[in-house]
Amino acid sequence: MSLRQVTIIGSGNWGSAIAKIVGSNTAKYPDLFHSQVKMWVFEEEVNGEKLSHIINSTHENVKYLPGIKLPANVLAVPDVVESVTGSDILVWVLPHQFVPRLCGQIKDVVKPDAVSLSCIKGLQDSSEIKLISTLIQEELGTDCSVLMGANIANEVAKEEFSEATIGCNDDVMGPVFQKLFTTDYFKTTAVKDKDTVELCGALKNIVAVAAGFVDGMGLGGNTKAAIIRLGMKEMVQFSKMFSPASQQLTFFESCGVADLITTCYGGRNRKVSEAFVKTGKTLDVLEAEMLGGQKLQGPMTAKEVYHVLKAKGVEGSYPLFRSVYEICYEGMPPKHLLDTLSTI
């Protein structure tokens, strides 16, 4: 069997943490993978020096994951076409709004038998929900699995123990992906319920926004527990509507309840939403001030989901999802979330 070449598309906070794992494991399994891992970097200057050059010379992403050394076999490549040419496995780790443009740039050079794995937590905005993995599959003509879980990037990069769920419906690639991502500190489980795994990763960000509103209003654990419970209920309900074959047990994997809990107590969506209540600043301003170039996913996902629910005429059955959208985009005060909860 020929060795598989791996490319990581994205080099932000989570992308760099994933690069650390993948770089270590390709070296660990020389019978399965090419040692060198290419990582596409959106080129920008840091202190007058190109970020790709900094990464390749210091083996550190000083802007998005400072203080963490990347394996020496991770090569930063600023040209996305060059980064994917000849690769067998494409690992997508970047904000979901950039996926369509990148697919258009690389589709003519992607190998016909290449496979993708998406670590992207978001949805394509349209009148019907489209998963990012489906978008990648349609644009590139290749299969796409997913990896989701309770994974705060900085904690993973520091090798604090965490878990993740791989949604892969392919019997051959499931074990390959587990070897690519599993370490002593990062445990993965593979399940054949890809759509549910991916939906959990996207929908939990809406709930995290609501949790941030709760923190911003100075409320305690009882209220946040109610938000988490209702959020999980709506996640399950939405997943069943989207995919009737959705498996209940998947919600008890890392991609489900564990990711929901950790993102409601940590992570950028909760943090920025808390500041939204306390400061009165817009989400766009707070994203620029607080995230250092990273993108806020929760409000955008709330808008995408609301558009679908509205088109189907079922938005009333999703009071938490609807309230988050109304607070983020229609000027409703954060207290509107509590008013909604009290009427359920």
Rank of each mutant, 00 (worst) to 15 (best):
Val80Tyr: 01
His53Gly: 08
Val93Thr: 04
Ser118Gln: 09
Ser52Ile: 01
His34Pro: 09
Phe33Arg: 11
Gly67His: 10
Asn73Ile: 02
Val99Gly: 02
Lys38Ser: 13
Lys28Met: 12
Ile54Val: 14
Ile106Arg: 06
Ala19Ser: 15
Leu102Trp: 06
Pro66Trp: 07
Met39Asp: 10
Trp92Pro: 00
Asp79Trp: 00
Val81His: 00
Asn25Leu: 07
Glu44Lys: 00
Ile89Leu: 12
Val22Lys: 11
Ser35Tyr: 01
Asp88Cys: 01
Ser118Gly: 06
Met39Ile: 05
Ser116Phe: 05
Ser57Met: 05
Asn56His: 06
Lys50Ile: 04
Gln124Glu: 13
Ser35Gly: 15
Val110Lys: 09
Pro95Met: 05
Ile18Glu: 00
Val41Met: 07
Glu45Gly: 08
Leu70Met: 09
Val115Thr: 09
Lys121Ala: 13
Ala19Asp: 13
Ile54Met: 06
Pro30Gln: 13
Phe98Ala: 08
Ala114Met: 10
Leu123Pro: 09
Asn73Thr: 07
Ser118Tyr: 02
Leu123Tyr: 04
Val22Cys: 10
Ile120Tyr: 03
Leu51Thr: 02
Cys103Leu: 14
Glu45Tyr: 12
Gln36Lys: 15
Leu90Thr: 03
Leu32Arg: 12
Phe98Asn: 10
Lys107Ser: 14
Asp79Lys: 01
Leu90Phe: 03
Cys103Arg: 05
Leu102Cys: 03
Pro100Ser: 07
Leu94Asn: 02
Ser57Thr: 15
Ala27Lys: 13
Gln97Ser: 08
Glu45Lys: 15
Val99Phe: 01
Lys50Cys: 13
Lys69Gly: 01
Gln124Val: 15
Ile55Arg: 02
Val110Thr: 07
Glu49Met: 15
Val91Gln: 10
Leu102Arg: 10
Glu82Ile: 04
Tyr64Cys: 02
Val37Pro: 00
Val91Glu: 06
Trp40Gln: 07
Ile54Arg: 13
Leu70Val: 03
Val81Asp: 00
Ile18Val: 15
His59Trp: 00
Gly67Asn: 11
Trp92Ala: 05
Leu102Phe: 10
His34Arg: 14
Lys38Phe: 11
Phe33Gly: 04
Val74Phe: 04
Gly48Met: 12
Val115Ala: 12
Cys103Ser: 10
Val80Glu: 01
Phe42Ala: 08
